[in-house]
């Protein structure tokens, strides 16, 4: 699992397209709901984009703890899909929304908290983590490449 993060409009998508060509993309920006089971994906290379949007939906419907539990279940399921075949590679893109002023609205505060925790869970589970800053990538977790 490879987690790619960074601020909005920093070139994350272009970087992933260049690094992982010909992937199947499931994007929250195109209103695709958060997938739980990935069994029907017919490609070995899968990109999940816009997870912060899925986390907004999660945090709108659940409290902080429930949101994180559900998120962890999804991470497990995604990890299982990837592990079931050594050719499989999962790339997860999330926009960092955690560095602004504390939001006025309670639901936006919860969203931001849940997103921060979820990104930490994802980064812990992923073998590789990259931070994209205006197209420049900084590897935060190098992974076990030979």
């Amino acid at each position: 699992m490879h987690f790619v993060t960074g601020g909005a409009f920093n070139g994350k998508r272009a970087w992933v397209k260049k690094t992982y060509p010909d992937a199947c993309w499931l994007s929250a920006y195109e209103n695709v709901p958060m997938p739980s089971l990935l069994n029907d994906i017919d490609k070995n290379l899968l990109v999940l984009e816009g997870i912060e949007i899925w986390l907004k939906e999660l945090s709108d419907q659940n409290d902080a703890n429930q949101s994180r539990e559900i998120w962890k279940h999804h991470l497990e399921a995604w990890g299982d899909w990837e592990k079931a075949n050594t050719k499989r590679q999962l790339v997860v893109i999330g926009t960092d929304i955690t560095k602004g002023i504390v939001p006025m609205e309670k639901d936006n505060r919860l969203w931001r908290d849940v997103t921060g925790w979820a990104f930490q869970d994802l980064a812990a589970k992923a073998e590789k983590v990259d931070l994209i800053w205006y197209g420049i990538d900084q590897t935060l977790k190098p992974g076990g490449d030979m």
Binding site: G7, A8, F9, N10, G11, W133, Y134, G135, I136
Partner: peptide, 14 residues
């Protein structure tokens, strides 16, 4: 505004 600024920053970095 954010979209334009991000794109300008990417070009400036390049």
């Amino acid at each position: 505004y954010g979209k334009l600024l991000g794109q300008i920053h990417q070009q400036l970095v390049q």
